[in-house]
C-alpha cells in the first residue's frame, strides 16, 4: 500500500460514513435475531448468558443436552468461553432464551425461595471419580454441609479425600451442583473456585433460610 493509497482510504471511508447511520441499533437487533435463528436451526452448540448475583456476575452456558457450565467472574468469563470453544465447539453465541429457566431458578435461589434446582445438566466436562463426587453433591441438603472425608466415603473411595477436594475445585457447575456445601472436617470453609467470600455468602444464605 502506498501513502497516496492510504490517504485515499481514509478519505473514502469518511465519504461513505452516512451508511453508518443507525448501525449500532441495527446490529443489536440483528444479533438477537441471529441467536434465535441459530437456536431454531440447531446450529448453536453452546448458548450462554451472564446473570447478576450476590456473588458477582455468573456466566451460564448450555448445550442442547443441558446446562454445561456455571462460571464465577473470578474465573474470567472470556477464558471460560474460550475453553468451551476448544473442548465442546466454537459455535457459541450469547443466546439468553436457552438459559431462561436456569436464570430464574438461580434468582429464586439467591432470594431464598428455592432450596433445590430442577434443571437438566450436561456433565460432559467431568468424568471418572470427579463425576461420582459431583453426582453425590446434590444429595447434601440445602442448609447442610458435609466434610471432604464424608463425601469421599459417599462417592465410594474413603481414602480419596484430596481427590474430593479437586473434584470440588474443578466443579463445572458451581452453585447448581452444591460443592459449596463441602467443608473441612474442622468446620472451616475450605477453598472455593468462586473465592472464600462467595462460599461464605452461599452458606450464610442457606443457613438463614
Amino acid at each position: 500500500m502506498t501513502i497516496e493509497h492510504s490517504l485515499d482510504h481514509r478519505d473514502v471511508t469518511s465519504l461513505l460514513e452516512p451508511l453508518d447511520a443507525g448501525l449500532e441499533l441495527a446490529l443489536a437487533s440483528l444479533r438477537a435475531r441471529l441467536a434465535s435463528d441459530a437456536q431454531l436451526t440447531h446450529t448453536l452448540d453452546v448458548a450462554y448468558r451472564v446473570v447478576d448475583s450476590p456473588v458477582g456476575s455468573l456466566l451460564l452456558a448450555a448445550t442442547d443436552r443441558g446446562i454445561v457450565r456455571v462460571a464465577f467472574e473470578v474465573e474470567d468469563h472470556a477464558d471460560v468461553l474460550q475453553f468451551l470453544a476448544n473442548t465442546i465447539s466454537p459455535r457459541i453465541l450469547q443466546a439468553p432464551a436457552r438459559l431462561d429457566d436456569a436464570a430464574r431458578q438461580l434468582d429464586e435461589y439467591f432470594n431464598g425461595t428455592r432450596t433445590e434446582f430442577d434443571l437438566i445438566l450436561d456433565f460432559r466436562l467431568s468424568r471418572g471419580f470427579r463425576l461420582n463426587v459431583l453426582q453425590h453433591l446434590p444429595r447434601i441438603a440445602y442448609g447442610h454441609t458435609e466434610s471432604y472425608a464424608e463425601v469421599a466415603l459417599a462417592a465410594g473411595s474413603p481414602n480419596a479425600v484430596r481427590a474430593v477436594g479437586s473434584a470440588c475445585a474443578t466443579n463445572p457447575l458451581p452453585v447448581i451442583v452444591p460443592c459449596h456445601r463441602v467443608v473441612k472436617s474442622d468446620g472451616s470453609f475450605g477453598g472455593y473456585l468462586g473465592g472464600a467470600d462467595a462460599k461464605r455468602a452461599l452458606l450464610t444464605l442457606e443457613a438463614a433460610a
Binding site: E24, L27, R31, L81, L93
Partner: peptide, 19 residues
C-alpha cells in the same frame, strides 16, 4: 490455532459486514 467463540467473531466483524 484455537478458534474463538463465534460470539467474538460477531462482536469483531458484525459492524463491518453490515456496512
Amino acid at each position: 490455532i484455537t478458534k474463538k467463540p463465534f460470539e467474538a467473531v460477531v462482536q469483531e466483524h458484525g459492524a463491518t459486514v453490515l456496512r
